[in-house]
């Protein structure tokens, strides 16, 4: 899975859960700090966005397999329509994880919920609801 250049700024990398779905992992470092000792909201939002797009790419790849596509799918473009982010807890000086869950993948629009957590997935530091336009070739 190829991440955009902005993911390198965040130092975010992709791991896989037991089912092969992508989980983004971001270390705490100087370039993502807001107020001292805490993650900046924009860095958390950026990680959530990368996680949501990774989840969509993963789902679209699967779609391609089903259709027996010659390039294994993923021939759709993903364009953000809007994002609403809730910040629940401060992001501390530790590793942050994020993953996206697709609520609905339609022909034209995908609805995704992404959450970010540090110690415990049940205690998210932030969550975002996102709508994407899916442009299939």
């Amino acid at each position: 899975m190829k991440l955009p250049p902005y993911a390198d700024v965040l130092k975010a990398e992709v791991e896989r859960d037991a089912d092969g779905a992508p989980i983004l992992v971001m270390p705490f470092h100087d370039d993502v700090v807001g107020r001292p000792g805490f993650l900046q909201g924009g860095a958390i939002s950026g990680l959530l966005e990368v996680a949501a797009i990774a989840a969509l790419q993963y789902a679209l790849e699967g779609e391609g397999d089903n259709e027996g596509g010659d390039e294994g799918g993923g021939a759709a473009r993903i364009k953000p329509i809007n994002v609403t982010i809730d910040f629940m807890r401060g992001g501390r000086d530790k590793t942050t994880y994020a993953s996206g869950t697709i609520t609905r993948l339609g022909n034209r629009v995908a609805n995704v919920v992404a959450t970010a957590w540090q110690d415990d997935p049940a205690k998210p530091i932030s969550a975002a609801r996102m709508n994407y336009l899916i442009v299939r070739d």
Binding site: P4, P5, Y6, A43, G46, V50, P80, V83
Partner: peptide
């Protein structure tokens, strides 16, 4: 541009 930097801005 990615949307993350615009959200940060």
């Amino acid at each position: 541009l990615a949307s993350g930097p615009i959200i940060a801005l």
